[in-house]
Design a protein around this nucleic acid. Structure first.
Length: 776
DNA sequence: TACCAGAGGAG
DNA sequence: AAATCCTCTGGTA
């Protein structure tokens, strides 16, 4: 009989007759399935201060209420084989109380694995893979978005109603539900009686359309909390769960998570923040990034006014805008969800979890599962106090070469392929292998003085090797695959594996990690420094000039050699020689040839490749907290100098930008500066312009929270720069401080380039009139 | 002018 | 709730 294809969307447990029953929510090719597991009992482990005291500890635990069974088990604890007690208890809710009681018992060293959620425990122990096969089962995905009445600025869910809900799904249904529309006729528009009607319509539609995954943009922290409060007020059931259970809001650190049983809710906002590097992360910014298309926009500040005016044309625009929000969120979900499916499968974590977890949590989810497979007892998470202590202890990281400043020609780049992962594997770096007793102390020591076992492969190197091996296999399959769709899936998979592999080093140094080891992190970094130092020194011996290098890369030139072919020939010989001496699994790779480059300081430089394409690192052009006018002028100057070798034009470009600013015709869009609020407003010791601008906006009814990006303009009015800074929404075109944008934005950005060419401050001061830039 | 807080980038 | 290294700005004394 063929195995039926199904995918695990969600899991939880319910309590029935004082017994926990695991529920597994599957989607099949046709229909759904809820599998109930009634006979899985919660358990945790207890370790003793000494093996000989295990019996006494056992006796003491036996007497505690709700303990069903105690067994002895041999397990690996970091590097030791130890005997532990496996304590099975009646219900999951008994675990926290028993943990506390047992912790206080004599001879108890630690209670372990007591904080692993029950349903997750079952998934681990049964080797289930969430979202497995999901590529073969078509998922019904729906997104929604709400517009809310906001006559006083920020809306408040206790009094301001939802005025429309837009909905789009992968089956092709698109709707805007509202209850005031004048005579507007639009194919997707449905006018219902009231707020209650539109909320009920959303709930009914999701059920009727048989939706498997619900998405939206910022739905965790706005739409669902708001919807939930409105529904409660109107006494409407928000029973979106497959089992008709209501939407549940969970605390997740500083944020909320809206959980829907059996029908995963995935908020695309945090995912977009992880995936893209943008100046801002509004829906329209992300949409523009993916599809290159501008989304219709309205000013949300005028939303209430439009609603009250009942102006047909304005309402029509509002409906179209609302519709586009749901459609954009759906499109973003369709393009990014495959990545989430892969992450879920690789880390074997439910998509609700994996779509909200940061890289440390993802690594840890994977390690906890691999530990179970290998009979390793999982270390506990550190307490807040321990985590804080750990963060205070820093260590030396990567090495950065002081660049040879100025212009260079015919530059060759080499870098170590996956330097840190390959060091962890090649040097077997792990908490179980560090300074082991089984290996003699005379063998190779890392620069930190630590050494790593050569007999037994450590846990993390083994897991990492599995990831790397799998990635190689996936890449191979991808390259052989002809079908475009299949190829894309394999590419997403190999990228997900790469991200995970690259997170492992950071995980060692992560203060809240279960497998934290500053010594391991430090050793990896130290070995990295050793490899790059050796590469630099060998390059010098072979007659190369090392222009720059950072962590795992070197930029080199060959003095006295003008022909590209000859340079590359020599360079490849050089890297071959390096590679012959490297341990297996490590490789110095050719990274490209650049006809020209300019190096300013560490981590700040620009190159042109052979196609004339500009590559900029670290300079203002790459930063979101600089105005477009400065970034674009700098980029144009770089192109003029590097690609066109035309410094005269560079001077013209600067002159024109300065002129434009002076005449007052530069649009605000070109002057906006984006800066993130990285802490609570009250915590600022020193308020920068973005904080001051935000505070002014708050006085006018705006709300900002940690993580929000402030877009502000330096206006004419005020003393200090902060005084002059105002949120862009409040600024009229033309109201900007020309002086600031010339002297604090455009000129510093371009002068850095020109100074690196050997022009003195004084020469450059004459910029306003003319600039003589000959002879380089 | 010197120093510090804060931000965001590189790898 | 991944690490460190690094540059640069604007506020403050």
């Amino acid at each position: 009989m063929p195995v039926e294809i199904k995918t695990l969307l969600d899991a939880d447990y319910i309590t029935r007759d004082e017994k926990a029953v695991i529920r597994l929510f599957y989607k099949k090719k046709n229909g759904r399935e809820i599998v109930e597991i009634p006979d899985f009992d919660p358990y945790f482990y207890v370790t003793a201060d000494d093996d000989k005291n295990l019996g006494e500890l056992d006796e003491n635990i036996k007497g505690l209420p709700n303990v069903i069974k105690i067994e002895r088990k041999q397990m690996t604890d970091i590097r030791d084989e130890i005997l532990v007690l496996r304590v099975t208890v009646k219900e999951p809710r008994n675990v926290p109380e028993l943990r506390e009681k047992i912790k206080g018992l004599e001879h108890c060293r630690e209670v372990r694995e007591a904080a692993i959620p029950f349903a997750e425990r079952y998934i681990i122990n049964s080797s289930l893979v969430p979202m497995e096969n999901c590529e073969e089962i078509s998922m019904n995905i729906a997104s929604f978005d709400m517009e809310v009445y906001n006559p006083r600025g920020e809306p408040h869910s206790d009094k301001d109603p939802i005025i429309m809900i837009s909905y789009a799904d992968s089956l092709g249904l698109e709707r805007v539900w509202t209850y005031r529309g004048g005579n507007v006729k639009l194919p997707f528009l449905e006018i219902l009686d009231n707020e209650e009607g539109i909320i009920k319509k959303l709930v009914d539609t999701i059920k009727k359309q048989n939706i498997d995954i619900i998405t939206g943009y910022n739905t965790d922290n706005f739409d669902f909390p708001y919807l939930k409060e409105r529904a409660e007020k109107l006494k409407i059931k928000l029973d979106l769960g497959i089992d008709e259970s209501p939407v549940k809001l969970e605390r997740r650190g500083m944020n909320l998570g809206a959980r829907i049983r059996g029908r995963p809710h995935v908020d695309m906002f945090p995912i977009c923040r992880q995936v893209f590097n943008l100046s801002r992360y509004r829906l329209e910014d992300v949409y523009l990034e993916i599809y290159g298309i501008e989304k219709p926009d309205i000013k949300v500040g005028e939303l209430a006014k439009i609603w009250d005016s009942e102006d047909t044309e304005e309402l029509r625009k509002l409906f179209e805008y609302s519709m586009s929000d749901a459609i954009c969120a759906l499109k973003i979900a369709v393009s990014l969800l495959p990545r989430q499916y892969e992450l879920s499968q690789i880390t074997r974590d439910l998509i609700y979890e994996s779509s909200r977890s940061a890289s440390g949590q993802r690594v840890e989810a994977l390690l906890v599962r691999k530990a179970y497979e290998k009979n390793i007892i999982v270390p506990n998470k550190p307490s807040d106090r321990i985590a804080e202590e750990r963060s205070r202890l820093t260590y030396v990281g990567a090495y950065v070469v002081e660049p040879k400043k100025g212009i260079h020609d015919n530059i060759v780049l080499f870098d170590f392929r996956s330097l840190y992962p390959s060091i962890i594997i090649s040097h077997n770096i792990d908490t179980s292998t560090i300074d082991c007793k089984c290996c003699e102390k005379d063998h190779y020591k890392s620069p930190t003085g630590h050494y790593f076992c050569r007999k037994n492969t450590g846990f993390i190197p083994e897991v990492l090797n599995e990831i790397v091996t799998k990635r190689i296999a996936v890449k191979k399959r991808m390259n052989e695959e002809k079908g475009h769709e299949k190829r894309k899936f394999l590419d997403v998979e190999q990228q997900a594996l790469k991200i995970l592999a690259n997170s492992m080093y950071g995980y060692f140094g992560f203060a809240r990690a279960r497998w934290y080891s500053r010594e391991c992190a430090e050793s990896i970094a130290a070995l990295g420094r050793e490899y790059i130092h050796k590469t630099i020194s060998d390059a010098g011996k072979d007659g190369f000039n090392v222009i720059y290098g950072d962590t795992d890369s070197v930029y080199i030139t060959k003095p006295g050699e003008g022909k590209k072919e000859k340079i590359l020939e020599n360079a490849v010989k050089f890297s071959d020689k390096i590679n012959r001496e490297l341990p297996e699994g490590m490789e110095l790779e050719y990274g490209g040839f650049y006809p020209r480059g300019i190096f300013i300081t560490k981590k700040r430089y620009a190159l042109t490749d052979e196609k004339g394409k500009l590559v900029v690192k670290g300079l203002e052009t790459r930063r979101r907290d600089w105005a477009n006018i400065a970034k674009e002028t700098q980029e144009a100057v770089l192109n003029a100098i590097l690609r066109d070798k035309d410094p005269e034009r560079a001077a013209e470009i600067v002159k024109k930008a300065v002129q434009d600013i002076k005449t007052g015709n530069v649009p605000l869009k070109e002057l906006a500066i984006n800066t993130q609020i990285t802490k609570g407003m009250a915590e600022y010791v020193q308020a920068g312009p973005h904080v001051v601008a935000a505070k002014k906006a708050i006085k006018k009814g705006y709300e900002f929270k940690q993580g929000d990006i402030i877009t502000y303009i330096v206006t004419k009015k005020g003393g200090s720069i902060s005084d002059k800074s105002v949120i862009m929404d409040f600024v009229k075109e033309g109201d900007y401080d020309a002086d600031y944008y010339i002297n604090n934005q455009v000129l510093p950005a371009v002068m850095r380039i020109l100074e690196a060419l050997g022009y003195s401050e004084d020469e450059l001061k004459g910029l306003g009139k003319q600039m003589k830039l000959g002879g380089f």
